[in-house]
Each structure stands twice: as structure tokens, then as C-alpha cells.
């Protein structure tokens, strides 16, 4: 309490001392004075002293401003005149004046390995949004090196042959769609996938997708409402779709 009182009395006397000694008012650290006065007090006497001390601080700030004005006058510079000049100058002219008196700190920005790892983790975790939510377009030109040579007649003929083969295999139980196709070389695999799609479309076979395992099974046609499904054959054919 006594210490706080002394500090405030000292602050109250400061402007008078500065005037008497003619010292540079910038020797007083105004920010430090305000920090000292910031602490909350409940004592009435201290509160009264606080208000007087604050008044003194504002006087010191006023003295500092006057000191600057006097110093500028010593350089034959009038603050209002400087402001008026700035008003008349364009942004380019002002920035040009700065460039002649600007010594920027030199340094090469770098990123640490840890920050780089953080960035990578972030991009892996972040979900795409907006238009990026859509899957990337399929590069159809990569699906096969040669186009399939099928005609309506040959499709029917080949589909019938495949149907017979499947029916004999289906006697032993459902066929795994991907395992079945993986037996064939690339071009033939695509042709078989097309024919399987055709047979499923005309209702001669059924395809069932297990929701949990995502396995696709070839079955004999059953009851129920048919619907079309898109099958990705990326696991079968080097990341490609059919």
C-alpha cells in the first residue's frame, strides 16, 4: 500500500520535474507508467491518486508531442506541412521515397522437415470439397490398347457360349465375378466383362454385390426387382474401370 502510494506520488510529480529540469520527456517510459497504474485497487485514497497520476501521464504525453513538434521545427519541418505534402503525393511517389530509405532484413525462408510432414498429414486427412468431391474423370483411352471388335451377331453368339459355360459352373455354386475375370488376359477380360453385363441386362444371369465384403457374385437369375449397378474392375485390370 505504502509502495503503491509512493509510486503514484512520484508519477504525479514527474511533469513538474521535467519542466524544471528541461529534460527530454521521452526519457519517461509512458507504457511502463500505465502498466503500474493498471493494477486494480479498491482503496479510495489510491483511486484518487490514480486519477491524479493519470492526469500527469497525459501531461507527459502532451510534452512528448510538443517536444517532437519543437524538434521538427528545429529541422524547419512543420508537422501540418508534412501531412499536407503526403496528401498531395501519390502512393507510388510515397513508396518510392520509402524504397530510398528502406533496409529490409535479409533471409531465406525455409521450412523444416517436421512442418513438411505436418503439411503432408494435413493434406492426406483433409476431405475434398465442392467440385473436387466428384471422382476424377476416367481415362478411357487407357482402358484397352485395342478396341473390341464386336458386332450384334457376334455378341449374341459369344454371350450364348459364355452363358452355357457359366451355367455349368454355377451348378457348383456362385462365382466370384473378379476371380472369374482375372483368369483372362487384358483384352479378353474386357470383352468378358461386357458380355457378363449384357447377360445380366437381358436377365439370363444375376449379379449380386455383398454390401459388407463388396464382393460381386455371379448367380442364376432369381426373383426380385432388378436394378443396374456400376462395377469397378480396378483390382482386376491395373486400376482401370469397365
Amino acid at each position: 500500500m505504502r509502495q503503491d502510494k509512493l509510486i503514484r506520488e512520484r508519477i504525479i510529480d514527474l511533469p513538474r520535474e521535467l519542466e524544471r529540469s528541461g529534460a527530454d520527456p521521452f526519457l519517461v517510459d509512458v507504457r511502463d507508467l500505465l502498466e503500474k497504474l493498471k493494477r486494480k485497487r479498491r482503496n479510495v485514497e489510491l483511486l484518487k491518486l490514480d486519477s491524479k497520476a493519470l492526469n500527469s501521464v497525459s501531461k507527459i504525453v502532451e510534452m512528448q508531442e510538443k517536444w517532437v513538434v519543437d524538434a521538427l521545427r528545429g529541422l524547419r519541418v512543420d508537422p501540418d506541412l508534412v501531412r499536407e505534402k503526403i496528401e498531395k503525393l501519390s502512393l507510388k511517389e510515397i513508396s518510392s521515397a520509402l524504397s530510398k530509405n528502406f533496409y529490409p532484413i535479409i533471409g531465406l525462408k525455409r521450412i523444416s522437415i517436421e512442418r513438411l510432414r505436418d503439411g503432408l498429414t494435413y493434406w492426406e486427412a483433409v476431405r475434398p470439397w465442392g467440385s473436387y468431391e466428384e471422382p476424377a474423370p476416367i481415362a478411357y483411352k487407357d482402358l484397352t490398347t485395342e478396341p473390341l471388335s464386336l458386332t450384334p451377331e457376334s455378341v449374341k453368339e459369344k454371350a450364348n457360349k459364355l452363358y452355357e459355360e457359366l451355367m455349368s459352373l454355377l451348378e457348383r455354386g456362385p462365382i466370384d465375378y473378379r476371380s472369374y475375370l482375372s483368369r483372362f488376359p487384358e483384352k479378353e477380360r474386357l470383352e468378358k466383362a461386357f458380355l457378363l453385363g449384357y447377360l445380366a441386362t437381358i436377365g439370363k444371369i444375376a449379379l449380386k454385390k455383398e454390401p459388407l465384403t463388396k464382393t460381386i457374385l455371379i448367380l442364376k437369375p432369381g426373383k426380385g426387382e432388378p436394378f443396374s449397378i456400376a462395377i469397378e474392375v480396378s483390382e482386376i485390370g491395373r486400376g482401370r474401370r469397365a
Binding site: I94, S95, L98, S99, F102, Y103, P104, I105, I106
Partner: peptide, 28 residues
């Protein structure tokens, strides 16, 4: 401790640090 050029920048070099309006605002 920082590194600085011994000579001030040329106008063209300043624009690599700050845009014209930013440099002018800093000066003002």
C-alpha cells in the same frame, strides 16, 4: 541479430517485399 543490405533497395526490388500501396502505407 539480423542481416540487412548496406545500401537501400531500388524501387523495383521493394515491390518484391511489399506492394506499392503497402509500402506507401508503411511510410505514411
Amino acid at each position: 541479430y539480423v542481416l540487412q543490405p548496406k545500401e537501400p533497395l531500388r524501387e523495383a526490388e521493394l515491390s518484391k517485399w511489399l506492394r506499392i500501396e503497402e509500402a506507401a502505407a508503411l511510410a505514411i
